[in-house]
């Protein structure tokens, strides 16, 4: 299996690179500042949050802006990757119906482009973390782990959604409502500490919350989470990818008839 993956990589890495370039560049096409928006956007957001939360709202959570911003950005990364991933097949139908090419590449490139964007945002984020009085630490490197598992998780969800979307366009509206619900269950603007022990455990059922929790522990609480948090992140990613791959394999060639 490793060998076939390697062979495919050899065959498709040029195409993959071109697709990532396209997806990444297209985001800011026709803007004057271009890719700089990947960093300017979050910077402006931070300034706004700084004004709002320092002057208008009292807060009990230390480093509240970092707390909220980490949650919000991780959630947005998940939401953008999956909802754009959902449309990745339909949007490229002009290509898929004319040229023989592995369809999953379009989804992967969208996800990798979103990850690049997220990475640029992280630079601004860590600068802010430093300014806000949290010293940078080697431990922060561990943030890479939940980002990678979230990437895989997003790809898995995207595989399912993109297949459904071809057959059933309504899924985009349902998914919007679902992600809104999920957002309020991800403890982005509040802390779960006020809930009972059992309720707190229930939050672990939300994959996005687990990833947010991980990053907050590393940055704000100053320690690398226990092994079981790593395991949960890994299992969510693997689970989503397995279901997604099954879905894709099953519907791979039926897509064409509906495009």
């Amino acid at each position: 299996m490793i060998k076939t993956i390697y062979e495919r990589w050899g065959k498709y890495n040029f195409l993959f690179e071109e697709l990532v370039k396209r997806d990444f560049k297209k985001r800011y096409k026709r803007t004057a500042l271009g890719i700089a928006w990947s960093m300017l956007g979050p910077l402006c957001q931070l300034v706004v949050m700084y004004l709002v939360f320092t002057h208008f709202f009292g807060r009990d959570i230390p480093h509240f802006i970092i707390y909220v911003f980490a949650g919000l950005k991780i959630f947005t990364f998940f939401k953008e990757s999956t909802s754009q991933g959902m449309q990745s097949l339909a949007v490229n139908s002009g290509i898929l119906t004319k040229i023989k090419v592995p369809k999953y590449l379009f989804l992967l490139s969208k996800n990798v482009a979103a990850l690049l964007n997220f990475g640029l945002m992280l630079v601004i984020f860590f600068i802010f973390v430093l300014i806000d009085g949290v010293p940078l630490h080697l431990r922060f490197v561990m943030v890479i782990y939940p980002m990678l598992t979230l990437l895989v998780f997003n790809i898995g969800v995207g595989l399912v959604l993109s297949a459904l979307y071809v057959f059933f366009k309504d899924i985009q509206y349902l998914y919007d409502i679902f992600t809104m619900l999920l957002m309020w269950m991800s403890a982005i603007f509040y802390s779960i500490d006020t809930f009972s022990e059992t309720t707190q455990q229930l939050f672990l059922l939300n994959p996005i919350f687990v990833h947010i929790h991980y990053v907050r522990l590393v940055i704000l609480h100053g320690y690398i989470p226990a092994w079981h948090i790593h395991l949960i992140c890994g299992l969510y990613a693997l689970g989503a990818l397995t279901v997604g791959a099954w879905f894709y394999k099953r519907y791979n060639y039926r897509f064409i008839y509906y495009m």
Partner: peptide, 18 residues
């Protein structure tokens, strides 16, 4: 299947890759 927003050069490379 070409992308209207991208340049001719970018489109050529993408199509070649495809």
């Amino acid at each position: 299947g070409f992308d209207g927003e991208m340049t001719v050069r970018e489109n050529t490379f993408l199509r070649g890759a495809l």
